[in-house]
Design a binder for these strands. Sequence first.
DNA 1: TCCATTTTTAATCAAATGATTAAAATGTTT
DNA 2: AAACATTTTAATCATTTGATTAAAAATGGA
Lengths: 210, 210
Amino acid sequence: MAKSKEAKIVDTTTEERIKAAARVVFHKKGYAATRTRDIAEEAGINLALLNYYFRSKEKLFDIIMFETIFGFMQNMAMVLNEEKSTLEKKVEMIAFNYIDFITKEPNVPIFMLSELRNNAGRLLEKLPVKQLIMTSAFFRQHQEAVAKGKITEPNPLHFLMNLLSLVVFPFIAQPLLQGISNLNETQFNQLMQERKKLIPVWVKAMMKAK
Amino acid sequence: MAKSKEAKIVDTTTEERIKAAARVVFHKKGYAATRTRDIAEEAGINLALLNYYFRSKEKLFDIIMFETIFGFMQNMAMVLNEEKSTLEKKVEMIAFNYIDFITKEPNVPIFMLSELRNNAGRLLEKLPVKQLIMTSAFFRQHQEAVAKGKITEPNPLHFLMNLLSLVVFPFIAQPLLQGISNLNETQFNQLMQERKKLIPVWVKAMMKAK
DNA sequence: TCCATTTTTAATCAAATGATTAAAATGTTT
DNA sequence: AAACATTTTAATCATTTGATTAAAAATGGA
């Protein structure tokens, strides 16, 4: 490495700049619509450097994709596995954390889910998300609440789906929702901020319904 | 047109076969990942015929995209604008119709929303969805229910978002959900069928929550 | 049957795109 | 300073891809 350790505080290495640029462009346009030249331009580097550091577009994509899924699931896995917090608290945490996260990274959900549709097998097998979530405190607490009659719907997958639906879907459908409502981006984000408090209330009510 | 009117009952015209093939491939892979050769192969035609009938990939795509959005919104607009049915009945109809529709066309939601992200303006301006939905009986009935104190959340957009979230999102996240739950496709679809009855109950409970 | 029109095909083009190469520039070690 | 290693650049390649063209085939009407 030709770069001295302390020289650049604000700047980063070429390799990191390429990764950061690739993240931006891949998230925005998806794998197929992204040109390696787009990434090079975004990073302000010579096109050949992309191949010098990452061998190919596909290998670079795999890195970005893995980090994106991991970053998305990590937070959820942590919250769902907390032994101490209540089920209600977990719902609050998920709503709060993800609405903030997706507001900052609005392209991540649709990017992730679009690309997963092509390659779910290959991309998910590296991540031990299955174990982490299906055996989580969240699911155990749900079962306990069902046993006590506090929750009517016995399938924890419905519970998780509903929570994620209410949190994530509005962002995915943002262009459509703005198209039918005339909200600008700021107003839309305000609506999403409202949902931080509303979703836990709604989920609570839903799960007691019968 | 060299084709006689009654000649083919089971078969269709070349133009229709190209459109049907384009619909399949575009829905599955999106605009950027679709090659005109993929469409030609799917349709079983010579590549040049695509340009002969539709001029360009982009023009063909615009047709498919318009029809897809229109087909998706049409049903919703109709249900939301029924003057006679109750708000609760409308929720039931949306849940029932869309779960059936998306089960048959599982790629449509993510296709539509992905492509809208690039081109929301151009693609939505042709459709008068705004008027149809924002001034619908659905929204009016919602306001009436709010006035009567039967619904706590006064913003009808939250109401519509919640309904669509619960119906559509699980399909969009299907690869991820199957990845963490080990369900096969049949089991997943059974779960979705269950939601036809569950979602109306949940939505009802949510909207009374406070 | 003959002719004009429409439809289909095979061959080809030009531009875009992922990737490579050889040389230049920069940094490190001796 | 000299030698070596790493990083960067400009030029180029081979393939893919959307589109076109000219000719052939099929079709329908006179």
